[in-house]
Design a protein around this nucleic acid. Structure first.
Length: 492
RNA sequence: GGCGCGGUACCCAAGUGGUAAGGGAGAGGUCUGCAAAACCUUUAUGCGCCGGUUCGAUCCCGGCCCGCGCCUCCA
């Protein structure tokens, strides 16, 4: 199975394979840690997670590098306002970022690269550009990339900037540039600001240079795939290409993937519009981490995703259906043997699943394949036409589904617990949904004990007590399902 | 203004030149001590509107309307 993935550079679906025949080398633009990540950020990281997980499922190892931008204008400004160093300021957001990744079950890239830890590499890249005549130093000590040095500029975003370079309005604070479109490689130190002493002077990196320098550091001058949100296509990625390819005379990344935006209620999410959400906000409202994950991955990455609270509820219910199905398979007692229909259904679902993801990561279609299989199997079980070998054929399909989607196995308790702990510490207990508080007040052991008591009561035909327990648990969000194979409980 | 994307049932959403996946929700039913789950039936002669190409278009072409994104920091 070869993944065909849309390539922004070529404008078509291209096979995505490691150039060296071994691991796929990919670079993904990570967060700027000036605040908590929001669900828009995580939609991008989640879709990239789908990509890397699918690659691995199909037997392609990945070497995935992600940067953390821990120095930029906002960070400098905010940390100064807070009266702390930028390292101190970013530490909590870096930590929060990893917590959020874990909550959403986004796999850690093989390599995390922090901008502040790669300043020398950036400086030497600027030097290299300077030697090639593509970088120049302005009077204040800042360095700029000379756009005219890279005639192919615009090839990624398909922009033709040739006609509008000169004579264009120049911002007042950019008077030192030769041409309005030239972009900063290195910003000269300003009094009181964090800066580094390097071969190219005292200062701090421009935004784009970090990705070029770190990608080359860990993946080489030329690598397989570069990904990020659609907004990064221009100018960020365009600038990365310009500076990298000018420096190395090699293609930077062969393949470019861009995840489209998440909208909220049909509009761009922004703090000023009041439609801005972080994963933590949603967890505090009582939504499950798995529901957030599924909602954000259920619409294929090349379509905008319109986030609504309905979409989370839908995802919650869809996951519940799959979990119930898997539990039924695992707990059920099936006679030995197999049914031809089920064997075929399992095989077909697996093929459809593979083809869907292999075709530009069509998660919606992959999901459909699994639900179709679930219905067919449930029907067969209802009719007693389901056998032990059928279960053995289907469980691996679910396993492979979860290897990428990772929502069936219930790991929602920990993120919920952590979100509560965070709320307490951040003074946001007022935002915690009552249902979440209630659920958190009841541990698994307590639930098990009540379930056991109810079973005893039922055997004694004491239905009044049994119903009382059911009611008590329901009030704390725990739902019981009786079946001939025992009682199953779940948190709503 | 330039570039790009989308408009499919109550909601979300996939998809194909040959007659509409899947999920959620609603209604009815089967099953059930209760409940839940599961299953069955049901909700688009219809895929924004108007033309065109075609034996045939939701899917191709043209025009129009509506919504959105990017072009500046941004996942």
């Amino acid at each position: 199975m070869t993944l065909r993935l849309f390539n922004t550079l070529t404008g078509q679906l291209d096979a995505l394979e490691p150039a060296d025949g071994k691991a796929l080398r990919m670079y993904a633009c990570g967060p700027t840690v000036y605040d908590y990540g929001h669900i828009g950020n995580f939609r991008t990281f989640l879709q990239i997670d789908i990509l890397r997980r699918f690659l691995r499922l199909t037997g392609t190892p990945v070497r995935h590098v992600m940067n953390i931008t821990d120095v930029d204008d906002k960070i400098i400004r905010n940390s100064a306002e807070a009266g702390v160093s930028i390292g101190e300021y970013t530490a909590r957001y870096v930590e929060a970022f990893f917590e959020d990744l874990e909550a959403l079950r986004i796999e850690r890239p093989e390599q995390i690269a922090r901008a502040t830890e790669h300043i020398p590499q950036m400086a030497s890249l600027v030097e290299k550009l300077a030697r090639a005549g593509a970088a120049y130093k302005a009077e204040d000590g800042s360095w700029y990339f000379r756009l005219k040095a890279f005639p192919e500029y615009g090839k990624l975003s398909k922009k033709d900037l040739s006609g509008m370079e000169d004579g264009a309005r120049v911002d007042v604070d950019e008077y030192e540039k030769d041409s309005a479109r030239d972009f900063a490689l290195w910003k000269a130190a300003k009094p009181g600001e964090t800066s580094w002493e390097t071969a190219i002077g005292q200062g701090r990196p421009g935004w784009h240079i970090e990705c070029s320098a770190m990608a080359m550091e860990y993946l080489g001058e030329s690598f397989d795939l570069h990904c990020g949100g659609e907004d990064l296509m221009f100018p960020h990625h365009e600038n990365e290409i310009a500076q990298s390819e000018t420096a190395t005379h090699k293609p930077f990344a062969r393949h470019w993937m861009h995840v489209r935006f998440l909208l909220v209620d049909g509009r761009k999410m922004s703090k000023s519009e009041g439609n801005f959400y972080t994963p933590r906000d949603l967890l505090l409202k009582g939504y499950k981490a798995s529901a957030i994950r599924l909602a954000l991955i259920s619409v294929p990455y090349r379509r905008p995703f319109n986030f609504t609270f309905d979409s989370l509820t839908d995802a919650t219910n869809a996951i519940d259906r799959l979990r119930t199905f898997q539990a039924r398979l695992k707990a059920g007692k099936f006679a030995a043997g197999e049914s031809k229909e089920m064997q075929e259904a399992a095989a077909e679902a697996r093929i459809k699943y593979d083809n869907a993801l292999g075709n530009d990561l069509n998660t919606a279609e992959a999901l459909a394949a699994i639900f179709e299989l679930a219905r067919a199997a449930n029907t067969a079980m209802d009719q007693g036409q389901f056998f032990a070998s059928d279960r053995d054929a289907i469980l691996p399909v679910l396993r492979d589904f979860d290897a990428v989607f990772d929502v069936i196995e219930d790991r929602d308790a920990e993120p919920a617990r952590r979100a509560m702990a965070w709320a307490e510490q951040a003074g946001r207990m007022g935002d915690v949904a009552p249902e979440l508080k209630a659920a958190q007040s009841l541990g698994d052991e307590a639930i098990e004990a009540l379930v056991a008591e109810r079973t005893t009561a039922k055997q004694a035909r004491n239905f009044a007590r049994a119903d009382e327990i059911r009611k008590e648990l329901a009030e704390k969000g725990v739902v019981l399902e009786d079946s001939k194979d025992g009682v199953r409980w779940k948190r709503k």
